[in-house]
Structures are given as C-alpha cells and as structure tokens.
Design a protein around this nucleic acid. Sequence first.
RNA 1: CAGGCUGGUUGGGCAAUCGCGGUUCUGCGUUGACGGAAUCGAGGAAAGUCCGCACUCCAUAGAGUACGACGUCGGAUAGCACCCGGGACGGGGAAACGCCGUAAGGCGUGAACCUGCCGGAAAAGGGCCACAGAAACAAACAGCCCCGCUCACGCGGGGUCAUGGUGAAAAGGUGGUGUAAGAGACCACCGGCGUUUACAGUAAUGUAAAUGGCCAGGUAACCCCCGUCGGGAGCAAGGCCAAGCAGGGGCGAAAUCGUCUGUGGACGAUGGGAGACUGCUCGUCUCCGCACGCGCUCUCCCUCUUGUGGGAUGAGCCAGCCCCGGGUAGGCUGCAUCGAGCAGCGCGGCGACGCGCUGCCCAGAGAGAUGAUUGCCCAGGCGCUUUGCGCUGGACAGAAUGCGGCUUAUAGACCAGCCUGAAGA
RNA 2: GCCUCGAUAGUUCAACGGACAGAAUAAGGCACUCCUAAGGCUUAGAUGCAGGUUCGAUCCCUGCUCGGGGCA
Length: 118
Amino acid sequence: MQKKFRLTRSEDFKRVRRIGRSYAHPLVVLVAQASNILERKGARVGVAAGKSVGNAIQRNRAKRLLREALRPHLASIVAAYDFVLIARPALASATLDETRDALLNLLRRAKILPTDES
RNA sequence: CAGGCUGGUUGGGCAAUCGCGGUUCUGCGUUGACGGAAUCGAGGAAAGUCCGCACUCCAUAGAGUACGACGUCGGAUAGCACCCGGGACGGGGAAACGCCGUAAGGCGUGAACCUGCCGGAAAAGGGCCACAGAAACAAACAGCCCCGCUCACGCGGGGUCAUGGUGAAAAGGUGGUGUAAGAGACCACCGGCGUUUACAGUAAUGUAAAUGGCCAGGUAACCCCCGUCGGGAGCAAGGCCAAGCAGGGGCGAAAUCGUCUGUGGACGAUGGGAGACUGCUCGUCUCCGCACGCGCUCUCCCUCUUGUGGGAUGAGCCAGCCCCGGGUAGGCUGCAUCGAGCAGCGCGGCGACGCGCUGCCCAGAGAGAUGAUUGCCCAGGCGCUUUGCGCUGGACAGAAUGCGGCUUAUAGACCAGCCUGAAGA
RNA sequence: GCCUCGAUAGUUCAACGGACAGAAUAAGGCACUCCUAAGGCUUAGAUGCAGGUUCGAUCCCUGCUCGGGGCA
C-alpha cells in the first residue's frame, strides 16, 4: 500500500480513534470516520497492532496480513474515508483467507464497501 | 564399531507474477500524493541492555574526599569484567578396575572434558558465629593432680586439655620422653603455612633439599584496609529551519452630508485608510464608531449642585500590515559509501589476534519498507505395495546512531578434532 | 532510549544470615442453632527459576523470567 493511502500523522490516528465508529471482529477491529476534506478522493488507512498481539514478529505479521488483504479492494473504495485497522491477538496465527473474509465483513458493515459486491 | 566430549561453518535453494521502501538516471500539450528504467533491501543472535568504546552536549585550575567497579600470572585489543593461553584451590564426569554384598546395588580410584572461584583474617581496627556446649577467641562443666582446713562427708585455693560429651568449627596427627597430673614442654616420623637455596618456567607456579621459623578458628559475594580505574548525561544526544498562539517594536486615516430614532445608536452617499487579487495601472472584493484619546461602555467608592463633580494598579472596546527575539506543532539534519568496514589469498602466533596483497561498496524506515501466490529441487517427518510413490512440512526470531565483548532463545544439517572401551590387521 | 523498585499461603502484607517462615482474610472440618450469619475451636496451604559465597540463605553475589513506577 502506497504511502499516499496511509495515515501517517499521530493526530489523524487520534482523531479517528476519538470520533470514528468502531466495528469489531474476533480477528480485527475497524474504526472508520468519513473524511470531511472535500477535494480528496479514496480512503486513507492506518494499521495498528498493540503489544497484546505478541512480539515484534507477530505484530509485523498481523500488519502485513491486513495490508495484503486490503490491497485488492482499495481501488473500489470511492468515498473519502479515514479508517484504522487494529489487530487482535488471534490474527497472528490466522491465514490470509481468514483475514480477507474478516476484513470484507467489516468493510460492508461499515458501508465502506457496497454489500452486493463479492 | 559403540559411548562420551569439544570446536567451527551454516541457519533452505532456484525461477516467475503481483505488491512495498530507499538510491541513481530519466519522461512530460497534463510538473503531479505523476509515470518509466536500473539497482539495493534483516540476524547469528537484529533480542536482553550486563560491560566497554566511538560520537555529541554540559561541566571542568590542580589535587583529594564520598560513591562505584575491578583485583592469580602472562598475553591480545582503540578499549573492556565475562576475550586467549597458563596456574593454585574446590565441584561434576563414562567405561574399566578395586573393596563390600547371594543379588539389586553401594563406596573408592578416576579419561577427554565441563564448571565455580582467586589481594589482605600472619600489616591495623570493628562486627557476627543461632541451637548445643564449661568455653566460639577466650574459657575449667565433669574428670585428673597438688596444697590448706576438716575425724570424715566435704569446702576453699591452684595446676592441667591428655580423657568425656556438644558443635560446621574446640591450641595438627601417631608413638615416646617427661610430670604431682598433664601439655609441641621436649624427641622421632608425618601433615600444613612460610623463609632460603638449586633446577624448570617470561611469570603465577611446580619439583627437590635445608630450616635452633611457625601451627590460638572461620567470615572481607559483613564493615573495612591496600592497589588500580572512573567528571556527568545520552542520537528521544546535538545542530539548522520554523506555522499558530502569546510577547516586544514600528507604520497607519484627525469628515462632511442625508434619512430613521425617546436616548444610545443604525443605515446610505461622497471622500479617506489598510489588505487581497495583478508584472504595473485601472478595476473589483473585504475590513475600519475614519479615536490610542482631554476617548467610549459597564462596575465600585467618595461628595452632595439627587444627578453633578472627583477617584480606582476594576473589567471591556478600538482595522490591517511590517519587523524582531526566543521557540511549540511540524520539517531537515545527525543517518546510511570510507568504516577499529567486508570478502579472498598468503605469512606470523597454541590461541585471542596481528601484518601484507588484491578486490568490493554492502539496508536505511519514520504509524515505521522484506509481503502474497505458483512451480521445481534439497534436508526432515508420517504412511504404504519399501529400487520407489503419496501426503505433510521449515527452529529461534525483525534493523532504528554505529562498533567490540558477554548473556539468553534456537528445528536441524555439515566439517574437524580429543578421550575411553571392544574387535581386527 | 535511559533510570529505578519489586516477586513470600488463593489474596494483602511481615520476618538481624539461625527451619516449626508469622498475621489478617479466603478455603475445609468440628461443635453452637429449628436453619443461616456472626462469634468459638481446629486443619491444610507459600519464599519466581538456575548457579555460587557461607557451617547454614527469604535475606548476600551473579545470570535469567515476569511485573510495577518515573524521565524526556
């Protein structure tokens, strides 16, 4: 995922975590906020993994899984959204397919992706 | 061949597609959060942060104290406490052998090797040594012996550590001489600690001999004493740029008319000022009670001409722009190609390591890049119809200023060597 | 990145280097009560792990494993 689609500032993370809506799944938690900057299109994503996920290897693994699972669907998100994906401990031992299912489920519940798309 | 042990190397390989980060080059009717090409992209521990440095800032005349670390010998190194090679004293260690045992087994000797520790208690001082025991660093409980008193039992004084019991530890052990009884008090042999000499070794130390020297404990990973070393903090160090808010300084316009209104005031016109747009003018838009004052509004206090005057270091209001210093968010740098650098070869050294030659340039993120899929192969595991096939499947673990050492985690694979036993030539 | 403190019964805390490791509470049992609670009697239960110093270690030293604070 290219840097222009990422959340990079600590301020952005704080804002999304404070006023965004959250959607939970056993593997991952999604916090989303509709962006109010008019000119920008597409989404910006931040990926986080706390210490409860495991050691540095397992945290990196969780974040890479989430990025890889999101990558094919990033282009189909048209609305301007900022969202944060927070890994949970079970994600460190999950497969890519499980991660993708969890992620699509969450994105549809948050209405970031249309529900009829498969 | 079996068993035990040590050291070193490695830490899956090749290819394809998609994706991510850096560097260099490059393209453009579109200078972009743009596109293209080339190239590079985790480790032996990147980890823990236990030591030592480089580097940076602060402090600093010199020396000392406090505090802390270290302390066998020699070497290596930029430096280091844990590196390398030795030494003393302990602990562990298989087969085999010896002894005991019917046996199971136990005890002892004990290879390679592993492992702990190392100034001083014989230079000074303080503390502690529970329980037991008479006594724990100075002492007589029982016992033995002598003297005095007593008819006697016994009492008092003294000598003694040989004997007894206690304990982790009680003036080295055995035999004798000696004595009232005893005692290294003395003698012989042995043991330990020193001193001297000779030999080996750079040295620690070892071996041997001599000694008309000693044998009153332990503990310094208790305080302490002696010697050596250490200024403090850390890349979130430090340097540069610098929104916004606040602060300081400066520029800046000294007016008329009309309408409405109880006052206060509101609106409009003309002219003016400040700023923005523009290369400039014009023009358009926004702001300004066109005052920083003898100002306006509110609050409080005093007075008394009851709505006048005075006072308050009480609150509030007054366009916009420019400059200045420190500096927050943030950005750039430190910081990624010159280094205690890496690889290969040769030489010296038992080794840590050093020297020489040749070649190479080798990650650099910043919410933090190494991922996904597929195929073939190499180890490994499981199953079977065991020349083989099928299924499965990859340890510990992720750079964050950089190095050296240590510690901890780690599936396996490969190489070299040492010791013991058995068999064979 | 750095600096500190700690680890003891199920829980919260004690304990000069001297073993029967203490207290409160929780747990089990016994009586009491018509039943329960409170109160009474009683029982069991622990030094994070591995080495070392010492006659002897919860305590001293070293290395690990966890956990809590603090600075910027």
